[in-house]
Write a protein that binds this DNA or RNA. Structure first.
Lengths: 240, 240
DNA sequence: ACCCTTTCTCAGCTAATTCTCAGGTGCTTC
DNA sequence: GAAGCACCTGAGAATTAGCTGAGAAAGGGT
């Protein structure tokens, strides 16, 4: 059974996460500050560490550095605030394997933990892929075919949502809350703008569109353009 | 999409649950005290209520009683402390539908919510089918046989009404109020127009008609053309 | 302080969608 | 078989959703 160490200073949240991971079949160990977290890593040898970034005594970066300095390569999933973009980038640079923006969905946390475990078996590849699109969540490298390009943090998070739910129509609200935070209040137009940025980068060399608009609902990551039949429009032509 | 009202006074926990439910495809609404919870029930009409037992202003029992007294039968999942056995018993006696002991696993909560929806039959099915017609409310994919086609939001809602009540004659008013809103005022002709749009798309390749007109009443989703009242024994012939 | 990157807002534009209207078509009744 | 309904449908007007360029605001790096 895989052992997960969860480090967070909010007691109630910690308890719930512990329960959730146990319910999902993991062995869960908890810690509420950086120092005791390090101790637990040595004594319990967890397979994955879920690490909150803001911690008493020794913060997330501190724990991460301490571990990596000693060649401890236990996969780390960090938890950061939405506005702490810097932390996310810095964390990944220093060897964190993935991150989640607080507040996050516990079921997504479970999914990420599973993904991390799957990866550790065969090399530390942190790869999301769909069609000819590839995304390395650890190095933040994105490529279409073999053209590499970079995304800003928000663009990256947005594409991440799509890559984790390919073929699925995601509603605008859903996307907004996952990328901009559950309590996002503002113009939905930001989403449109960012979809635009992503498309521009993803189709820079005339590649076919991967992020399709589903009018009145949201967007999907899908290969073919949906055979949209304007209801009063012309006849559908031949076959596909 | 099913709407869930979560009532708990721990802000952080509440946010995480909200995010989790949204991530799992529900529509989540939250409230932090008993009184505002009641208001939300009236204004939002949730399909399930997740109710913490210890609440400011009006506690769980109070909310439950108030609702049941008014014949509001929305399924309720209550959250109680481990040692509050009395509350659990009392809650179930007064009409709560299920309970979870704090701290609980969020994934178990999700499972219970799904179970409640299934049990009470209030849940919205995601895959609807009738004859060779299929409708996936998650991907919004509609297919006739294996021809996939897309519907505009209104067309989709309209077809949804039929798919959820197959073989059942639906009155014009009934359909109008379900798709266009309870207080729809306007020309009934919109309905005819939209039925027309649907038929055009559903029969684009000469498939037999599935949405039948019931003269003077409304429409039915049914395979054969209804041989309405054969009072003068006239045979109907085949196609258009 | 200044520059550069990133995020976000705004307004105009385009096109899909919704809705209205004005004949049609065809059942029903007398 | 004519009149009266009930329903259908094509055309197009009105509305709305989504896209995009421009640029303001925020924030980090030098």
């Amino acid at each position: 059974m895989d052992k997960i160490l969860i480090v967070d200073d909010d007691q109630k949240l910690l308890k719930m996460l512990e329960r959730t991971l146990i319910y999902e079949g993991f062995d869960a160990v908890t810690s509420t500050d950086g120092e005791s977290a390090l101790e637990k890593v040595y004594s319990e040898r967890p397979d994955v560490i879920i690490l909150d970034w803001m911690l008493p005594k020794l913060d997330g970066i501190g724990v991460l550095e301490a571990l990596r300095q000693e060649q401890n390569e236990t996969p780390i999933l960090m938890l950061t605030a939405r506005d702490a973009v810097q932390n996310r980038v810095e964390g990944l640079e220093r060897g964190a394997d993935d991150y989640l923006i607080k507040p996050f969905a516990s079921t997504e946390l479970v999914a990420r933990v599973r993904a991390l475990l799957r990866r550790t078996g065969k090399g530390n590849q942190t790869l999301l892929a769909f069609a000819d699109l590839t995304m390395d969540t650890a190095t933040r490298e994105v490529r279409r075919g073999d053209r590499v390009f970079t995304l800003t943090p928000t663009e990256f998070d947005l594409l991440g949502v799509f890559m984790r739910h390919p073929q699925q129509v995601l509603e605008r609200r859903q996307i907004l809350s996952q990328v901009w935070g559950y309590n996002f209040v503002g113009d939905d137009n930001v989403l449109e703008v960012y979809i635009g940025y992503l498309r521009k980068k993803m189709e820079a060399e005339g590649e076919p569109r991967l992020i399709q608009t589903v009018r009145g609902v949201g967007y999907v990551l899908r290969e073919e353009d949906a055979p949209s039949i304007p209801h009063n429009g012309e006849e559908r032509k031949g076959e596909e």
